[in-house]
Amino acid sequence: MKVLANFEDNHKIPTNSSIDNLLNGGFEKGTVTQIFGPPSSGKSNIALCLAVNVAKSGKKAIYMDTEGGISIDRIKQIAGSDFSQVANNIMVFEPTTFQEQGENIGAIELWLRKNHADTDIFILDSAVALYRVDDMKSSRLNKELGKQMGILSKIARSFDIAVIVTNQIYNAFDDEGNNDIRAVGGMVLQYWSKVIIQLERGEETNQRIATLKRHRSIGEGRQAVFRINSRGIN
């Protein structure tokens, strides 16, 4: 574990971008939100902005990086002059196997039983990177993925923490040969994710489009356009 302390008493965590308008204020605590999209669509940038905003507020952010791609330089860019404070409030886990990912999630749940009052967000970036390269049989993989997601849902509800999971996509073809973009993890991730956001690249440089695919109180199909820049997203 690497260590990179209060939000006002509200129930949403902002990104300080147009995505907050999409979600009527920000990412909800107490629930699991899934963000899926192709590579370089902004998933990790959104996740890092959320972690930095939580850390700036004085609360702890847990960031589990399963792809080994978290950049300290990028955190410095987003945090700016607040980097020293931010670095002390982000806890980074870097599992290298899908089994280790599950073990880390279990260990974090135990830690949160004593420290949840100081923690506002748990980010799993990405939920399926290690799942896709594991040689375990698919039935066992899905069972383990469901177990991990169940623990994350419990963490969100029991400790009033925002749980954010990023996800990848794959192309599927229907009987007529039409290409359909789908999120990895199928029904397992869909079942546990109470809010789902799809990201796509826009036509302009650094432009991204976020589409709401599921929400408990906001209609599906709502969109927001944002850009990735040197300070995160705007």
Rank of each mutant, 00 (worst) to 15 (best):
residue 169 I to F: 04
residue 125 D to W: 00
residue 43 K to C: 08
residue 64 M to R: 03
residue 53 N to A: 04
residue 25 G to Y: 03
residue 145 L to Y: 00
residue 156 A to Y: 02
residue 207 Q to G: 03
residue 212 L to A: 10
residue 230 S to F: 06
residue 22 L to M: 12
residue 12 K to H: 07
residue 130 L to N: 00
residue 26 G to W: 01
residue 107 A to Y: 08
residue 9 D to H: 12
residue 56 K to A: 06
residue 225 V to C: 03
residue 39 P to A: 13
residue 182 R to Y: 03
residue 60 K to E: 09
residue 66 T to Q: 06
residue 230 S to T: 13
residue 14 P to E: 12
residue 202 G to E: 10
residue 43 K to G: 00
residue 179 N to G: 09
residue 64 M to K: 02
residue 147 K to M: 09
residue 14 P to V: 15
residue 182 R to H: 13
residue 49 C to W: 00
residue 44 S to Q: 09
residue 9 D to Y: 12
residue 227 R to W: 07
residue 148 Q to T: 05
residue 161 I to Q: 03
residue 193 S to W: 04
residue 150 G to R: 11
residue 25 G to H: 04
residue 234 N to R: 13
residue 122 F to T: 00
residue 29 K to Q: 11
residue 109 E to K: 14
residue 183 A to P: 14
residue 221 G to V: 01
residue 31 T to A: 10
residue 110 L to Q: 15
residue 69 G to M: 12
residue 193 S to Q: 09
residue 37 G to H: 05
residue 33 T to K: 10
residue 221 G to P: 07
residue 148 Q to D: 08
residue 35 I to E: 04
residue 4 L to A: 09
residue 145 L to T: 02
residue 62 I to K: 06
residue 89 N to P: 00
residue 12 K to V: 10
residue 61 A to D: 05
residue 72 I to G: 04
residue 168 Q to H: 14
residue 32 V to W: 01
residue 42 G to A: 10
residue 34 Q to L: 15
residue 218 I to T: 08
residue 67 E to L: 09
residue 207 Q to N: 07
residue 124 L to D: 00
residue 148 Q to G: 01
residue 42 G to K: 02
residue 129 A to Y: 04
residue 101 Q to N: 02
residue 33 T to C: 07
residue 168 Q to C: 02
residue 122 F to W: 00
residue 157 R to F: 03
residue 151 I to S: 07
residue 53 N to C: 09
residue 154 K to Y: 07
residue 2 K to T: 12
residue 54 V to F: 06
residue 44 S to W: 03
residue 90 I to T: 05
residue 1 M to H: 12
residue 66 T to G: 08
residue 198 Q to S: 14
residue 17 S to T: 08
residue 209 I to L: 13
residue 136 M to Q: 13
residue 15 T to L: 12
residue 198 Q to C: 00
residue 87 A to F: 04
residue 66 T to C: 11
residue 79 A to S: 11
residue 33 T to D: 06
residue 21 N to R: 11
residue 193 S to A: 15
residue 53 N to E: 14
residue 172 A to S: 15
residue 225 V to E: 12
residue 145 L to S: 04
residue 147 K to F: 13
residue 234 N to L: 08
residue 101 Q to F: 04
residue 71 S to E: 09
residue 186 G to S: 10
residue 163 V to L: 07
residue 47 A to Y: 01
residue 191 Y to D: 07
residue 97 T to V: 10
residue 59 K to L: 01
residue 51 A to H: 01
residue 67 E to M: 07
residue 84 S to V: 06
residue 210 A to F: 01
residue 15 T to G: 05
residue 44 S to T: 15
residue 198 Q to N: 08
residue 16 N to L: 12
residue 219 G to C: 05
residue 28 E to L: 15
residue 36 F to A: 10
residue 210 A to K: 07
residue 214 R to H: 06
residue 77 Q to E: 15
residue 41 S to G: 03
residue 184 V to Q: 08
residue 217 S to I: 08
residue 10 N to Y: 05
residue 219 G to Y: 04
residue 107 A to K: 13
residue 9 D to N: 15
residue 78 I to M: 07
residue 67 E to K: 02
residue 31 T to W: 01
residue 117 A to S: 13
residue 166 T to M: 07
residue 30 G to A: 12
